[in-house]
C-alpha cells in the first residue's frame, strides 16, 4: 500500500478570511507553462517518466453505460497494465461511480491499487447537500479509499465562498479516513484568478488533493491551469505548512503530454510530488499510449495500437 500523507500534518481548516487571494499574470503563466513543455525527455529519462506516469495514474471509467464486467476488466488492467510484462508497475487507483465501488474493492483486493469513487452528485454537484454527503458516506462505507467531489460552482461563481468552503468541510467530515479529492471543474470557473482562488478555498477546507476537472466538459487540464494550481499548492504549503496533492484529469492522452506535466510539477512543487501519494493523472486513454512507448522500448519496433485493449 502506498502511504497516506503523514497524519502529523496540521489538518485544521483554514477559514476563507485567512486565505490568500491574489491576481494571476496570465501571460507569464502561459509563457512559463509553454517553456516547461519544451523539455526533451529521451531514453532512460523517458522510460522513467513512463513508469512514473503509470504509477501515478487513476484509471478511470465514468460512463452511464458502466457495468460490473467493465469495472472488473478495468481493475485487471489496473493491477497488470501489461500482462506480458511482470515488471510493469500497477497504476495508483481505479476511479469509478459509487454504485460500482464494491465491485472494484473486491477486484483490487490484495494489490496496491486503491479504489477512488466520484461522489456528491458527480459531475454537476447540483443536488442537496444532504444527498451529496449521503452519497459520499455510502461510497466510503462500501470501501472507497478516495473520494472525488466537485465544488459548488453555482455558489462559487455567485461569490458565496463561505458556502463552498463549508460544503467541502462537510464532505471532508463525511469521508472519515478516506482521502478527499476536490474537483474545481476549472473549465467553468472562467479565469486563472478564479482557479487559484478556488484552489485556496478547497485546500483551506481540508482537501487532501485538488483536481482540475471532471472530464465531462470541453475544457479540462491544460499546462497553464496545472501550473496555476501547482503554484497555489506551493503558496498554501508556505503559508500553512500543509502539503496538498494535485490531480490532473481530462484531455491527457499521450505519454509525451504526461511527461511534460511531470516536468511542470517537479519544477513547481519539487520531487516530493513525483509520487502517487501527491500527484495523479486521471485518464483512460493515456495508459495505452504509455504502453505503446514501453513496447517500443522493449522490442525496438513500433507497436500496433489496435493490439491494446479498447479501454
Amino acid at each position: 500500500m502506498t502511504k497516506l500523507p503523514p497524519s502529523s500534518q496540521n489538518r485544521d481548516p483554514v477559514p476563507v478570511a485567512a486565505l490568500r487571494r491574489r491576481t494571476v499574470d496570465a501571460y507569464a503563466l502561459e509563457a512559463r507553462a509553454k517553456e516547461l513543455g519544451t523539455r526533451s525527455i529521451k531514453a532512460d529519462s523517458q522510460a522513467a517518466a513512463n513508469e512514473l506516469t503509470i504509477r501515478c495514474m487513476d484509471l478511470t471509467t465514468l460512463e452511464g453505460a458502466d457495468t460490473a464486467g467493465r469495472v472488473l476488466a478495468l481493475c485487471n488492467r489496473a493491477r497488470h497494465p501489461d500482462p506480458t510484462d511482470p515488471s510493469c508497475p500497477p497504476v495508483a487507483a481505479v476511479c469509478v461511480y459509487p454504485s460500482l465501488v464494491r465491485v472494484a474493492v473486491e477486484a483490487v483486493a490484495g494489490s496496491t491499487v486503491k479504489v477512488a469513487s466520484v461522489a456528491g452528485a458527480f459531475p454537476s454537484g447540483q443536488s442537496s447537500l444532504a444527498n451529496r454527503l449521503d452519497d459520499i458516506a455510502t461510497a466510503v462505507a462500501d470501501g472507497a479509499d478516495e473520494i472525488d467531489i466537485v465544488i459548488n460552482r453555482g455558489a462559487f461563481l455567485s461569490g458565496d465562498y463561505e458556502l463552498v468552503h463549508a460544503e467541502i468541510l462537510a464532505a471532508k467530515a463525511a469521508c472519515g479516513q478516506a482521502h478527499l479529492k476536490t474537483i474545481l471543474e476549472v473549465g467553468e470557473l472562467g479565469s486563472f484568478e478564479a482557479i487559484r482562488w478556488a484552489s485556496m478555498i478547497a485546500m483551506g477546507a481540508g482537501s487532501d488533493v485538488i483536481k482540475t476537472s471532471t472530464g465531462k466538459i470541453g475544457v479540462s487540464a491544460t499546462p497553464p491551469i496545472a501550473l496555476c494550481m501547482a503554484e497555489a499548492i506551493r503558496e498554501f504549503e508556505a503559508d500553512t505548512g500543509r502539503s496538498v496533492g494535485l490531480k490532473l484529469a481530462g484531455g491527457i492522452r499521450t505519454a509525451k503530454q504526461a511527461s511534460h506535466y511531470l516536468v511542470l510539477v517537479n519544477e513547481t512543487l519539487g520531487s516530493k510530488w513525483l509520487d502517487p501519494d501527491w500527484f495523479r493523472f486521471g485518464a483512460s486513454g493515456l495508459l495505452n499510449d504509455v504502453m505503446l512507448q514501453r513496447r517500443f522500448r522493449s522490442s525496438g519496433r513500433y507497436a500496433r495500437p489496435s493490439d491494446l485493449p479498447v479501454d
Binding site: 525496438g300 519496433r301 513500433y302 507497436a303 500496433r304 495500437p305 489496435s306 493490439d307
Partner: peptide, 8 residues
Amino acid sequence: PWLADHDD
C-alpha cells in the same frame, strides 16, 4: 526496416 518492423 522501420516500416517492415512496424506492427501497424
